[in-house]
Amino acid sequence: MTQKEKIQQEIEKTLDSLNGMKRAEANPFLFTRIQARMNRKSGGWERAFSFVSKPLVALAMLALVMAMNGWSYFGNSIPAETLVSDTETASLPEFEREYKFITSTDSYDYENANDE
């Protein structure tokens, strides 16, 4: 028998080596392990992450963040007409009197007046 024929014979034997093999058996505790994994999956963080990673929730959160960004940029830049006008400044003491505000500046002026 030549070397080539011997090799061919080896190949055939190897290809046949799976004939009659038995099925591998799974771990007898497979179900218990599956249950444990499912319990872990259904609890706490994983549930929170799965909720947050839902496309609809993620998009809604993105839209909210963008809206807040927009508001902080455009909403906080005070337009010129909303600045306190001179007349409004003039009416401030009236406002203070009405609500009996005593500011530190007032008391300082008062003390100074006594000194004089």
């Binding site: 190897t14 290809l15 080596s17 799976l18 009659g20 093999m21 038995k22 591998a24 058996e25």
Partner: peptide, 16 residues
């Protein structure tokens, strides 16, 4: 080494 392969075929099956 597949656990279902018989002992005499073990090495051949590993090659396969």
């Amino acid at each position: 080494h597949h656990p279902g392969v018989s002992l005499d075929n073990k090495e051949r099956a590993a090659v396969l």
